[in-house]
Design a protein around this nucleic acid. Structure first.
Lengths: 137, 137
DNA sequence: GGTGAAAACTAGTCGGC
DNA sequence: GCCGACTAGTTTTCACC
């Protein structure tokens, strides 16, 4: 299991995923090597799934950031999931959920045009509820 | 504005936020120094807001990953937002939205107990629709 | 806005504890 | 599971184009 130090490492990496192992070590009172070997362990265990950036979608040219609750029409989900695979750059995350629908998408679109195209295709597979992000809360 | 190379850099960093500037340069046909200076520019412009890890919430001890659509009861949102500030580690993201409610929370909880506590308090400020993540879609 | 070369720093590997 | 020391590799800075 994860001890206190592992949790501190995770918190530091959440705040700065590009921190050097040396500095990370200082923050959690270890040497760089010890910190690095714990990070490798966390990666191998799958606790850390990868490293990425926090992107400002609007400044990156994706004007529309939205969440879409999906209510699939058919019991066969594969055509829907295949459709999503084709929409690669627009789909930031897709979660299978229990609650409001069966899937929840986090999407980004350069403009209403691409959103419209996407929704038109989506309607063939599922009903949906669309929530457009205005700002951080 | 962002040119083709900037967009490639962003895509590479989204896939691997810890890639070395040297490798990043190779991927986008630049030297490490040129890649690094473009990255610094993107950071300064606010396109890249920061670096972080993709955390497996369940393996990190947060069993419950959920999205909550918020329908505030009062026109005065500050008490609600103050309440959220107190719930720090549980709130991963909060977006002001147009669509299903006025806010959309992404939350994580160690167990149903903490979720229950949270919802009990939340009810004082807002109605909600809860969607619990089962898996990636 | 880009390069090449040198200096400063970091990561990875090792034996030892 | 962690440390100190070594080596290889990377980042940073600079003059130059």
């Amino acid at each position: 299991m994860l001890d206190r130090t592992d949790k501190n490492i995770i918190d530091e990496l959440l705040k700065d995923g590009r921190i050097t192992m040396k500095k990370l070590g200082e923050r959690v009172y270890l040497t760089g090597q010890a910190a690095a070997s714990r990070v490798i362990k966390l990666e191998e265990e799958g606790v850390i799934e990868g490293y990425t950036i926090n992107l400002n979608q609007v400044k990156a040219g994706y004007t529309i950031h939205s969440f879409i609750n999906i209510y699939t029409k058919s019991l066969e989900h594969k055509p829907f999931l295949n459709f999503l695979d084709q929409q690669e750059p627009y789909i930031m995350n897709n979660y299978k959920i229990s609650g409001e629908g069966c899937y929840m998408l986090e999407c980004r679109f350069p403009s209403n045009f691409e959103l419209d195209m996407f929704l038109t295709e989506l309607t063939k597979h599922a009903n949906y509820k669309l929530s457009i992000v205005i700002n951080r809360g």
